[in-house]
Measured scan of single mutants.
Amino acid sequence: SQTQRTQDENEARRIAEEWKRRGYDVEVRNRNGHWEVTWD
């Protein structure tokens, strides 16, 4: 799996939607004030 971090929730949601469209299983988490998008 791969993880991308961002400070911006909207960006995190956009990234998550992009990977979901490509057929990946995606998880979005808030950790210590930043957002992590993990896909595999």
Rank of each mutant, 00 (worst) to 15 (best):
I15T: 04
A16M: 05
R29Q: 12
Y24R: 05
Q7S: 12
G23A: 01
R22Y: 06
D8I: 03
N30E: 14
S1L: 13
A16L: 03
V28L: 07
H34K: 08
A12E: 00
W39A: 06
E9Q: 06
R14Q: 11
T6L: 10
V37G: 00
T38S: 11
E18Q: 09
W35V: 01
N10W: 12
V37I: 10
D40R: 15
E27V: 14
Y24W: 08
T6A: 14
T3Q: 06
N10Y: 11
G33V: 02
R29V: 14
Q2G: 14
E36G: 01
E11G: 03
E27K: 11
R21N: 12
V28Y: 04
R13P: 01
W39L: 07
G33H: 03
V37M: 02
E27Y: 11
V26T: 06
R29L: 12
S1A: 14
R31Q: 11
S1M: 13
E11H: 07
K20T: 10
R21H: 09
E11V: 06
D25G: 07
E11M: 06
N10F: 11
V28N: 00
W19S: 02
D40T: 15
E27G: 05
S1I: 14
D8F: 07
T3K: 06
R5A: 09
N30K: 13
Y24T: 02
A16V: 04
V26M: 02
Q2T: 13
T38A: 08
Q2F: 15
T6H: 07
W19T: 02
N10R: 12
R14N: 07
K20Q: 10
E18F: 15
N10E: 14
E36L: 08
R31V: 15
D8V: 03
E36M: 06
R14E: 09
E11K: 04
E17M: 08
W39H: 07
E27N: 08
R21I: 09
D8S: 11
R22I: 06
N30Y: 15
D40S: 15
R22E: 06
Q2Y: 13
W39T: 07
V28S: 01
K20V: 10
R5D: 05
Q2P: 06
R5V: 15
E18T: 08
G33I: 02
T3R: 04
A12M: 03
H34L: 14
I15E: 02
Y24S: 02
T6F: 15
A16W: 04
R14H: 07
N30R: 11
D25M: 12
R29A: 10
T6W: 08
R13M: 11
A16N: 01
W35H: 01
E27C: 14
E36Y: 14
R13T: 06
N10V: 11
I15H: 03
G23L: 02
G33Y: 02
R22K: 13
E11L: 07
D8A: 04
E36T: 07
T6G: 05
N30Q: 14
S1N: 10
A16I: 03
E18H: 12
D8K: 04
R22M: 11
R22H: 07
R13S: 05
V37D: 01
N30L: 14
I15S: 02
Q2V: 11
R31S: 10
I15P: 00
E9N: 02
D40F: 15
D8P: 02
R21T: 09
V26K: 01
R21L: 11
A16Y: 07
E27R: 10
D25P: 06
E18G: 05
N10T: 11
Q2W: 14
T3L: 09
H34F: 15
E36Q: 05
E27H: 12
R5L: 13
N32I: 04
E27Q: 13
Q7Y: 11
G23D: 02
E18P: 00
E18N: 07
Q4T: 13
R13N: 10
T38Y: 11
R31K: 12
R29I: 14
E36H: 05
Q2R: 12
N32D: 14
T3Y: 09
E27P: 01
K20W: 08
T3F: 11
E36C: 03
E17Q: 08
N30H: 14
A12Y: 02
R13Y: 13
N30S: 09
D25W: 14
